[in-house]
Write a protein that binds this DNA or RNA. Structure first.
Lengths: 216, 216
DNA sequence: CCGGGTCTGCACGCTGGCGTACACCGGCAT
DNA sequence: ATGCCGGTGTACGCCAGCGTGCAGACCCGG
């Protein structure tokens, strides 16, 4: 499988899959972040899940669906290994450790989606922002995020002003610092304290299902 | 596999799996409805997905996780076929049509969860109630639902009063009729008209992934 | 050094849904 | 028949987040 991996650049805003379009490749991000998001008819959007170096984009290929109703878009530029759909399906069919790994990752992804639903239902914008920042950081290898508030608002499916306000609070608390599309996390434990339980649930599940995975 | 299937009664409120507890069986509902829901620390809850005759409860068993952070609870009494976890894992490992079917169902489930997240984010209680009623009906074989508004509110993660109000509107519109824990859908197309796009997205995806499945 | 575009901050009124509290109503058991 | 209790209806104040509009602040390029 390895020789067919192809390192490809992932520019900001690049759409990997469009809703309903058959997938051609799977992607394994190395240092970028990809969002799975659903865009509604009225143009509003909501993030379903976020994928980084711990995972892969395109599980629908081996799940047998070939496509999904959501869009995959690069939120933080970087690179990813790309693999043709055929290759991943072939590898999957061998029913070996790779298959098991991919299935476990898929289950972790499911947990992330479930918790997104919960968070959307019950938690404040500020809490969701904390969760989102923490999840994103875990999926890069840095305490810094290059991302405008406008983009984050799109991901969370809220107004940009909501993000501005929440981010302002976090900054006053000394947890983060940001300016013009650059966010630095100063106090990670503090940020975790402000987040709702959703982050912890997802994190625990990823650690459990993919030991030695995302965080390392 | 078939001889090991065991028809078991599913009484209302029965908890099939508790959060974090290893799963012992998978369940294939015949005429009941099972909700996957997450219960927060403060006791509030939110439904992640809903399973009926079209699907199965316990995908985490063959996905390799053995457990999930959510709870599975019977929302509408009936029966289900039960299968020991060992048996389903064995069958799954054969990489045959059963495996493919289970994976496709899992993808459909993923879509339902994703759409739940979207709906929680953007749609009104009334729209969500419509979606929920329609999804539930599809998973039974009836136009009638035995379910108190209190229970529905728990599922949606909203106040009971919100459900009462929305249900009242739908009744005034002549779309449904209800009294004391019994809801009858009078005008299904009308109800679909009041629902948000989320229902249609999920339905389309189930039909696509499981042809001849849920609706029939 | 200046201009324009991008990113962030702030204000205002509005509304959906929340928390709370309580009244009513129908059916079942005593 | 009566009482009780689970299920439903209604009301009220409150607030987070929305939509909108606009002002400042920073950065890059000309």
């Amino acid at each position: 499988m390895e020789p067919r991996l192809e390192l490809t650049p992932m520019p900001l805003g690049h759409v990997l899959y469009e809703s309903g379009m058959p997938l051609q490749h799977v992607y394994f991000p190395t240092n970028c972040i990809v969002s799975l998001l659903y865009v509604m008819e009225d143009g509003h959007s909501a993030e379903i899940a976020i994928v980084g170096k711990e995972g892969m984009v395109g599980v629908a290929l081996f799940m047998g669906g070939e496509t999904t109703p959501s869009r995959a878009i690069v939120q933080s530029a970087g690179h990813a290994y790309r693999l043709p759909g055929k290759a991943i399906k072939e590898e999957f069919s061998h029913a070996g450790p790779v298959q098991r790994l991919m299935l476990r990752y898929t289950q972790a992804l499911i947990t992330q989606m479930a918790q997104t639903a919960v968070c959307n239902r019950h938690h404040s914008v500020e809490q969701q922002l904390c969760r989102w920042l923490l999840l994103s950081l875990d999926r890069l290898d840095s305490t810094e995020l290059v991302m405008t508030q406008e983009l984050i608002a799109n991901m969370l499916g809220v107004r940009r002003e909501g993000v501005t306000e929440s981010a302002g609070k976090l900054q006053k608390l000394g947890l983060i610092s940001y300016s013009r599309g650059r966010i630095v996390v100063l106090d990670r434990p503090g940020l975790e304290g402000q987040a709702c339980e959703c982050y912890a649930v997802v994190k625990r599940e990823f650690d459990r299902l993919l030991p030695g995975g995302p965080a390392r």
